[in-house]
């Protein structure tokens, strides 16, 4: 039961909170203490919108223990609108319908449950966009 980690990462898992460099404006996810571009240590929290395109993906058929009940499932690299690439599961879609370049939006889902007794971990996943909202 990695309860402290579960709790510590909730800003990232629940709201895609990364960092924005105060010196060069570079965005990072996961949050980094040192800017990848200009090496500045000054940054502020930045929430990503959660919209992006699928860059690459795989369907997992043999999974690590805690994910085993969910096979097959899809994990992808997603290019967020803001220009940052992140790793996440792609949900609500059959493996045969996944294509590189598809538009995705963030949703909050169960990542895994720690056995029958432990905490349930929630966090971001991505799904095909339900409806393009014009407003």
């Amino acid at each position: 039961m990695d309860i402290p980690r579960y709790w510590r990462l909730k800003d990232q898992r629940y709201r895609l909170q990364g960092r924005k460099c105060k010196d060069c404006g570079n965005l990072s996810f996961p949050p980094r203490l040192v800017c990848q571009k200009c090496k500045s240590r000054k940054s502020v929290p930045h929430e990503f919108k959660g919209l992006g395109k699928l860059y690459t993906y795989t369907a997992i058929y043999q999974a690590p223990d805690r994910f085993d009940p969910m096979v097959p499932y899809i994990v992808g690299l997603i290019d967020l609108e803001e220009g940052v690439r992140i790793t996440a599961q792609v949900t609500d879609v059959l493996p045969e319908d996944v294509v590189i370049g598809m538009d995705l939006e963030m949703v909050i889902r169960k990542i895994y449950a720690d056995g029958d007794k432990g905490p349930i971990l929630y966090g971001y996943k991505f799904r095909p966009i339900l409806k393009k909202m014009t407003a």
Binding site: D92, R109, K110, I111
Partner: peptide, 13 residues
């Protein structure tokens, strides 16, 4: 519900 959905995730959306 999908395997990754429950009352909490559905309530959030």
């Amino acid at each position: 519900p999908g395997m990754d959905e429950d009352v909490i995730t559905m309530s959030i959306e």
